[in-house]
Write a protein that binds this DNA or RNA. Structure first.
Lengths: 208, 208
DNA sequence: ATCGTGCTAGCACAGATGCGCTACGAAAGG
DNA sequence: CCTTTCGTAGCGCATCTGTGCTAGCACGAT
């Protein structure tokens, strides 16, 4: 092996250049040449790591998913079910610039997926995984008695997932909403422990 | 006035061509020429209605917001607070192909907004309006006694908004989830009438 | 010292893109 | 009638796009 450049590192750097471009100038500013310039490379070098644009975009999206997965993994040791849920949820939300970038890029590539089928696959898989994770969190809460038995795990999983993605979207468009996002997650988790409104009729709620 | 063509109609048709392109081929497939072809016009005619690409994109986004607003307006006469909330929320969700297209386009243009400042303005305004609407719905529910007094209107407004946008996103990526989305909205609205878990301590919830 | 290979650098090409500009048509005003 | 004005049609240009291709370079194993 001659002149060995750490290819993984190189590919990562390039993908991050894509991220920066997407955030700064929008998806349609992403071309092989602009990316090469942003990464401080020549077109030829870029194309050695990523022969086609499709390869580039696909890896840029994969890297987002890897980063998120790895950050989530770090919290999996938490024992208390509610603390685990809180940790994981707050980890997935774009609470800082780095995660905001990742979400923005993911969204941008989802939007581009009609033109690049591979992106659609990746996005679908990530989406499914996140949904599964939300259901699992609800399952764990259930085992710990923190999800009231009158509640349906599947429905609450879907609701949690929607709440998560919606909050993420809002944080993306309005970073100032961070404190209310944390409060929101907290309130929702506490709510899951209460009986479902269909099982236990709302006490004196119809009054006032 | 010579040869009068209904300009508004023309602009609408063109914007809809943009929509179709975004959905079928992704944002970066949108160029003056591809749009003209999709709309069955010549480049010159297109550019008579929209001199620059920025104009085109801005109007395409505006049209999405107008359509949504008008659909929502149709339900404002509903008297019962919960029925109103249900109607409005289900109207905003992408439950059919038409609304799915609108959401997809909106998302695509949000993603493109770094390159076109006007898009960022429009997106911000729409986002703010939707947030306000969710708060208002919660306010009405409160006046009708369908939002338990122990609940904070601002927080519940934000939560409803997040749930709404999250569910919308999920419906976009998985149209098969329509029934569960309706169920989800219904469950959430009922939940709002129950006491907040911090005010009324979760009855026997910590138990299994 | 030599050779093979991983990497850089860049040329070339066919096509697309946004936009400035002009020429022509048709229709409504005078 | 003629003139004005709106809309159509389209040429042209400078620039950018993705990708195929070929030299050369530096280095590590032989």
């Amino acid at each position: 092996m001659p002149r060995h450049i750490d290819q993984d590192r190189r590919r990562t750097e390039i993908a991050e250049a894509v991220w920066r471009l997407v955030v700064r100038e929008g998806v349609s500013a992403v071309s092989l040449r602009t990316v090469a310039a942003e990464a401080g490379l020549v077109l030829g070098s870029l194309r050695h790591s990523f022969p086609t644009k499709a390869d580039l975009l696909a890896y840029s999206m994969e890297l987002v998913h890897e980063r998120v997965q790895e950050r989530v993994r770090r919290h999996l040791g938490v024992r208390d079910a509610r603390a685990l849920a809180r940790a994981v949820l707050l980890e997935v939300l774009p609470l800082d610039e780095e995660r905001r970038t990742e979400l923005r890029v993911n969204l941008a590539l989802v939007v581009e997926s009609p033109a690049h089928p591979r992106l659609a696959e990746l996005a679908g898989a990530a989406q499914t995984a996140l949904a599964q994770m939300c259901r699992d969190l609800c399952g764990h809460l259930g085992s710990a008695g923190l999800l009231h038995p009158s509640r349906d795990v599947a429905l609450e999983g879907a609701r949690l997932h929607a709440l998560l993605d919606g909050t993420a979207l809002h944080l993306l468009l309005d970073p100032a909403a961070v404190p209310s996002a944390e409060q929101l997650v907290e309130a929702h988790l506490r709510e899951l422990a209460t009986p479902s409104p269909e099982a236990g009729p709302a006490s004196g709620a119809a009054r006032r």
